[in-house]
Design a protein around this nucleic acid. Sequence first.
DNA 1: CGAACCTATTAATGACCGCTTATATAAGTC
DNA 2: GACTTATATAAGCGGTCATTAATAGGTTCG
Lengths: 122, 122
Amino acid sequence: MHAFDVLGDPVRRRILELLAEGEMTSGAVSSVIQEEFGISQPAVSQHLRVLRDGGFATVRPQGARRLYAVNPEPLRDVDAWLDRFRGFWAPRLDALATELARGRRERRRNGSDHRDETGSDP
Amino acid sequence: MHAFDVLGDPVRRRILELLAEGEMTSGAVSSVIQEEFGISQPAVSQHLRVLRDGGFATVRPQGARRLYAVNPEPLRDVDAWLDRFRGFWAPRLDALATELARGRRERRRNGSDHRDETGSDP
DNA sequence: CGAACCTATTAATGACCGCTTATATAAGTC
DNA sequence: GACTTATATAAGCGGTCATTAATAGGTTCG
C-alpha cells in the first residue's frame, strides 16, 4: 500500500495526529477514535496495522498494552514529493529556506538520485 | 473527495508531476499516461476530472484543446498538515528554515486558526 | 488457577473506485 | 456540410478496502 493510500483514510490521519503529540497505547487511540468516528475497536486495530505495515508507526509492548509512536520516514517522503510544487507557493525568500531544508535532506539520504522517492511507478 | 484520496492514485500523482513542469493539453497528458500506465484516454480524462474537482488543477480552453495547469492550494494544505510532523525530521537548524516558511504561510492566510486545515473531520 | 482486561486476527459483507466500451459534444479541416 | 481530431461523459463491471461480528492470544490480578 502506497504512502498516500495510507493517508487517504481520515481515521488513519487522525491517529497520526494523535501520535504526533506523543506515544499512546492502542487502547487510548481506540477510545478517542471510537468516540470521534463511532467505529469498533477491531476497526481501529486494523487501521493501526495498516499504519504499522506502511511504516508510519512503530509499536512497543509494555505489559499488556502496546505503545504506538510515529515513525516519520514515509511522511518525510511525502514532504519530499511536495518539493516539486513548493515553487508555487514559496516564491523568492521562502525558497531559500525550503532549499536549505531540501539540500540538507538530500545530503542526509546517501547522496542519492532524488528521482521519484514517493513517486508513481508505471 | 479528500485531498489525500485524490493523491492516493499513482496516475493522478504522475499527472500532477507532469503539470508541475508547466501547462499541458489534455491530449499531451493522455499520451504520456497512456504510454506509462497503459490505460485508455477516457480513464485519463476521468482522472483529470478528479483533479479538477479536487481543486488540484485548472483548465483553460484553447480552441479544441484544453490546457491544464496545477492549482497549488490543496497541495499547500497537505504541506500545512505535515507541519505537525516536521519536528520529527527537521531538528534544530532546519527547524528555523521551515519555521520561517511556516510563519510566512500562516501570515499569508488571513491570520487564521491553523487547526486541521487538511484534517480528518469526524 | 481463573476471571477480567487489552489487543490482534479472521471471515464475511457492502460500498466505492477505477477501468473499459460506447457515445456525445465541440472545434478544426477539406 | 462531411470527416477528422480533441476531449468529455455515461453505463456497467470487477476488484479492493473498510467495517462488523466473532474469536483468539496474552497479561494482570484476585
